[in-house]
Computed example of a mutant assay.
Amino acid sequence: MATKKVYELTQSGLDQLKKELQHLKDVRRVENLEALKEAREQGDLSENADYDAARNEQARIEARIAEIEVILKNVKIIKINDDSTSVNIGRAVELLFVEKNETKKFHLVGTIEADPLNHKISIESPLGKAIKGREVGEVVTIKSATNKQSTVKILSIN
């Protein structure tokens, strides 16, 4: 028997997914149906690029809705332990990248919520794995997937 995949999310990540699902169902689906209707009115569907584009968009919308619904059925909410003094999922950390003498703040999240452009990194990423369980003041060497090494010092955990 196959085991179900469990998706770990913070409460804010769960709320964001629910909001995306609602938007897809209430807004994007309706917009897409209107685009399909307009494309059909143009006549011959066999050579209608607008119709093809609308059908492709419909497939993307429905696939994302199905994906989110699977995640929501198999979600595990991550409880954030505010008493802990170590780095873990759901916590925000400020790191000093020693070689660059640069500080950055990151929020550690599950893989589904990861968004590096918004400083949300997965606890499963090389950086996340390296700092997990560590405490303020510790210096950690991180090895990337390309074998590049860098050193970080944990400045704060919130």
Rank of each mutant, 00 (worst) to 15 (best):
V93R: 00
T103W: 01
E57P: 03
V87E: 01
A63S: 07
I68M: 09
K76G: 09
N81I: 04
S46T: 15
I61G: 14
R64G: 04
E94A: 12
N48H: 07
E94L: 12
S86G: 07
Y51M: 02
R60E: 11
I78D: 03
K100N: 12
L45F: 00
A63E: 12
Q58T: 08
K73A: 12
S86P: 02
I61W: 05
L72N: 06
E47H: 09
S84F: 05
I89S: 02
V75R: 02
N81V: 03
N56G: 12
D44G: 02
K104M: 03
V70N: 15
Q58K: 15
L45C: 06
E94H: 12
V98A: 06
R55V: 09
N74R: 05
I77R: 13
K100W: 04
D44A: 01
I77L: 12
V70P: 03
A59S: 12
K76T: 06
D83Q: 10
R91P: 09
E57F: 07
N48W: 00
I77C: 05
K100H: 13
N101S: 10
I78V: 15
I65W: 00
A59L: 11
V98F: 04
V87S: 06
K104L: 06
V98E: 10
I65M: 14
L72T: 07
E102C: 02
V75H: 01
I71T: 12
K104A: 10
L96Q: 11
D50W: 13
E57S: 08
I71V: 13
E47F: 07
E67P: 05
E99Y: 04
G90D: 05
I65T: 13
Y51T: 05
D50P: 01
K79M: 13
I89N: 11
E47S: 13
V93G: 08
I78N: 00
R91L: 03
N81A: 09
K73Q: 13
S46V: 13
A54T: 03
V93H: 01
I71L: 08
E102Q: 13
R55Q: 11
V75P: 04
V87P: 08
R91W: 00
I65F: 00
N81T: 07
S84G: 06
I78A: 03
N101R: 07
A66C: 09
D83A: 12
R55F: 15
K73N: 09
E102M: 05
S46D: 10
Y51K: 02
N48R: 08
E69H: 10
I68R: 06
K76Y: 06
R60A: 11
R91M: 07
I65G: 09
E69K: 11
S84N: 06
K79N: 14
K100V: 07
N56D: 15
L95W: 00
N56Q: 13
S84V: 04
I89Q: 04
I80V: 14
E99D: 07
D83M: 09
I77H: 04
E94G: 08
V98W: 01
N74T: 06
E47V: 11
E57D: 15
E62I: 14
D82A: 14
L72W: 04
I68C: 03
S84W: 07
E57G: 10
D83N: 10
I78R: 08
G90V: 01
G90P: 04
